[in-house]
């Protein structure tokens, strides 16, 4: 029972981690809490739902196309709602992001209706029993896919020229631009990658819980943001760790404590962690300079 819950928590955590990565990367570069990120996740899930149920596509191509489409949407949003605000303080883009979030969720709410929709049977569900533990194939796919995506991201960020430019921008945007890096392009790319990862998480969560609804982005978004802060916002391994920790805490907390307090438990732990380690688990300590 405990180990089965652990696997469940790990699966959930892997998805949170993928969403958290988008928050963390965008925050690392432009210092924006992208509140629309949860709705981008919802949109990714929606594309996959549409492709599998209306276009009758198989899940693998639908997964990839959903990631592609969502990253395009991410690019458009960045261009329309955030880029004009690059020089105007920190709260204006935040409000703009909230506007985007309301826009996307209500648009889908109107188009699809508020009810929860299930995915068609896209994965032949098998159960693997390892003694006490019951693992489903979906869980295996999700964890494997998340690990693969995170390794890919790590490769891009650490081993490629573009990744080097991204790290330079997150270190200091102005100096990076003086070194000949096209900062606008890098920011756009960051949004595209973050959106694609959120879409991947959206598709997997949608299939896992067999549910899609227009407001699903809200709580997943808040939790993923919590995960990003928990791990140390701006840090990529931190976002991964934060996501997994949050997923585990949430599942174990609701399994062994009162489940109606589930969300409160995650936030209480978050506040405690912040008080003990204000820059998150793996965040780099920011020194205040005069």
């Amino acid at each position: 029972m405990f180990l089965t819950q652990l696997v469940h928590g790990l699966t959930l955590g892997a998805c949170y981690a993928l969403i958290a990565l988008g928050y963390s990367m965008v925050y690392g570069i432009i210092g924006l809490i992208n509140f629309a990120h949860g709705d981008i996740y919802m949109l990714g899930s929606f594309f996959a739902l549409y492709l599998t149920s209306v276009v009758k596509m198989k899940i693998a191509p639908a997964f990839l196309i959903a990631m592609g489409l969502t990253s395009l949407v991410g690019l458009v949003i960045e261009r329309v709602a955030y880029k004009p605000l690059r020089r105007s303080g920190r709260l204006s883009p935040l409000i703009s992001a909230i506007g985007v979030s309301i826009f996307l969720s209500t648009l889908l709410n109107m188009y699809m209706g508020p009810q929860t929709r299930g995915f068609p049977d896209v994965i032949t569900e098998l159960q693997v029993k390892l003694g006490e533990i019951v693992i489903t194939t979906t869980q295996l796919y999700i964890v494997a896919m998340s690990i693969a995506l995170m390794l890919l991201l790590r490769h891009i960020v650490m081993r490629t020229r573009v990744g080097q430019a991204m790290r330079a921008c997150s270190w200091d945007r102005e100096v990076a631009s003086l070194m000949g890096i096209n900062v606008d392009q890098i920011i756009a790319l960051t949004f595209a990658i973050g959106s694609a990862l959120a879409a991947a998480a959206g598709v997997m969560m949608g299939v896992y819980f067999n549910a899609w609804w227009p407001l699903m982005g809200f709580s997943a978004g808040i939790k993923a943001f919590t995960a990003a802060v928990l791990g140390g916002i701006g840090s990529i391994p931190g976002a991964m760790l934060g996501g997994v920790v949050l997923g585990l805490v949430e599942i174990l907390g609701s399994a062994y404590l009162q489940s109606s307090y589930r969300d409160a438990i995650s936030f209480t732990i978050l506040i405690i962690v912040l008080l003990v380690r204000p820059s998150g688990l793996l965040g780099r300590k920011i020194e205040q300079k005069v």
């Binding site: 004009p84 605000l85 204006s92 506007g99 309301i102 826009f103 996307l104």
Partner: peptide, 18 residues
């Protein structure tokens, strides 16, 4: 609500300081 969301975005884009 769709218009409200768009309204917030455009307000911010055209008057970022309020």
């Amino acid at each position: 609500m769709i218009c409200y969301g768009a309204f917030l975005v455009f307000m911010m884009v055209f008057r970022p300081n309020g």
